[in-house]
Amino acid sequence: MQLYNTLSAKEREKLIEEAGKDRLTISFYKYAHIGNPQILRNHLFIAWDELDVLGRIYVANEGINAQLSVPADNFEVFKTHLDSITFLENVRLNIAVEQDNKSFLKLKVKVRHKIVADGLNDDTFDVTNKGVHVGAEKFNELIEDPDTVLVDMRNHYESEIGHFKNAVTPDVDTFRDSLDIIEENLKEHKEDKKLVMYCTGGIRCEKASAYYKHKGFKNVFQLEGGIIEYTRQVKAEGLENKFLGKNFVFDHRRGERISEDIISNCHQCGKPCDTHVNCANEACHLLFIQCEECAKAMDDCCSKECKEVHALPFEEQKRLRKGKEVSNKIFKKGRSEVLRYKK
């Protein structure tokens, strides 16, 4: 029985175009005790492959973290399947603010040690003793309170293109990096300030809020459903939108616009821009911000060196890449020295 992808991203992209059907981009997570993640992983892959679900799903003993797209006409069947799994019944689904039929091009369901790489030893604190969940209206009230410290739990390349006004935005590459930095910077305010956190869909704040309560913070709050749910509530309830710019998302869209503000700059020329791209040189693949003019001038590359490599015949590019390590440490999301106007 097939338990893995057999089509390439390009082949899948062509099939999506030929199908001509609208797809919904959705994300959800749930912390729960899963005895055998591999069995659940296989079950999900078989069921969702039949429904033409595409996306990136992580399953671990501690729960599930899913980012995916599903054909709109299969949504009800997909939801029924979710509800048939006890711990996922009526799980909150974050529907993307902006839809794109090609947000995901493969179905990847992977078993991981954790559903978010937080670097924490969960045995040392009560992960269920979480902060207070608040909706958009209460969140707006809290962040206007002078006794509130608002913290963005995302990475630097996420907050660079969009964040809530007056938020603390740690200059970190990973979620695990931010945890100790935030505690150290706010250690004098564990009792006299309200610690209010937010992230993309809420999952990072789930663990972080319990961790900070364990570390002695007395008043801990988190934005229910993250930026995605906040945006939905703001529109539905006619509330003031206090988010500036774009919300970074981990799919082919790379971002969805929340407000018309452009708060970041092209990393190559410095003009206002908030469009993330990956360097066209596959041996680099650097994630950075690039305007249309620079994309044209640089052939979608981050540097002259990468532009030269990208211009070589494909087989020559493959030869140059052979034997070289490729990892997130090399990708350095927006950190490369070749970028003149990086944050």
Rank of each mutant, 00 (worst) to 15 (best):
residue 172 V to H: 01
residue 178 S to W: 01
residue 178 S to T: 05
residue 179 L to G: 04
residue 179 L to I: 15
residue 179 L to V: 07
residue 180 D to H: 12
residue 181 I to Q: 10
residue 184 E to Y: 09
residue 185 N to Y: 13
residue 185 N to D: 13
residue 187 K to T: 11
residue 189 H to E: 03
residue 190 K to N: 02
residue 191 E to V: 12
residue 191 E to I: 14
residue 192 D to G: 04
residue 194 K to Y: 01
residue 194 K to W: 00
residue 194 K to Q: 00
residue 196 V to K: 03
residue 197 M to W: 07
residue 199 C to R: 04
residue 200 T to V: 02
residue 201 G to Q: 00
residue 204 R to K: 04
residue 205 C to D: 07
residue 206 E to R: 03
residue 206 E to V: 05
residue 209 S to M: 03
residue 210 A to T: 02
residue 210 A to L: 04
residue 211 Y to P: 00
residue 215 K to V: 07
residue 217 F to Y: 03
residue 219 N to A: 03
residue 220 V to G: 04
residue 222 Q to A: 00
residue 223 L to C: 03
residue 224 E to N: 15
residue 225 G to M: 00
residue 227 I to F: 00
residue 227 I to M: 05
residue 227 I to Y: 00
residue 228 I to S: 01
residue 229 E to R: 15
residue 233 Q to K: 10
residue 233 Q to F: 02
residue 233 Q to H: 00
residue 234 V to F: 07
residue 234 V to Y: 06
residue 235 K to G: 07
residue 237 E to F: 07
residue 239 L to S: 06
residue 240 E to W: 08
residue 240 E to R: 11
residue 241 N to A: 03
residue 242 K to H: 11
residue 243 F to I: 08
residue 245 G to L: 05
residue 246 K to H: 12
residue 246 K to G: 09
residue 246 K to P: 06
residue 249 V to D: 01
residue 251 D to S: 03
residue 252 H to V: 07
residue 253 R to V: 06
residue 253 R to F: 02
residue 254 R to N: 13
residue 254 R to W: 10
residue 255 G to K: 02
residue 257 R to Q: 14
residue 258 I to M: 06
residue 258 I to N: 08
residue 259 S to H: 00
residue 262 I to H: 08
residue 264 S to M: 06
residue 266 C to W: 04
residue 266 C to A: 05
residue 267 H to M: 13
residue 269 C to L: 05
residue 270 G to F: 05
residue 270 G to Y: 05
residue 271 K to Q: 13
residue 272 P to M: 09
residue 273 C to V: 05
residue 273 C to D: 13
residue 273 C to M: 06
residue 274 D to G: 10
residue 276 H to V: 04
residue 278 N to Q: 12
residue 279 C to W: 07
residue 279 C to N: 04
residue 279 C to L: 01
residue 280 A to F: 11
residue 280 A to Q: 09
residue 280 A to D: 14
residue 282 E to I: 06
residue 282 E to L: 12
residue 283 A to P: 00
residue 285 H to T: 12
residue 285 H to I: 08
residue 286 L to D: 12
residue 290 Q to Y: 07
residue 290 Q to G: 05
residue 290 Q to D: 02
residue 291 C to A: 05
residue 292 E to G: 11
residue 294 C to K: 07
residue 295 A to G: 12
residue 296 K to L: 10
residue 296 K to Q: 15
residue 296 K to H: 13
residue 297 A to S: 13
residue 298 M to F: 14
residue 298 M to Y: 13
residue 300 D to F: 12
residue 301 C to Y: 13
residue 302 C to G: 08
residue 302 C to W: 01
residue 302 C to D: 10
residue 304 K to G: 11
residue 306 C to V: 04
residue 307 K to G: 15
residue 308 E to I: 02
residue 312 L to G: 07
residue 313 P to K: 08
residue 314 F to D: 11
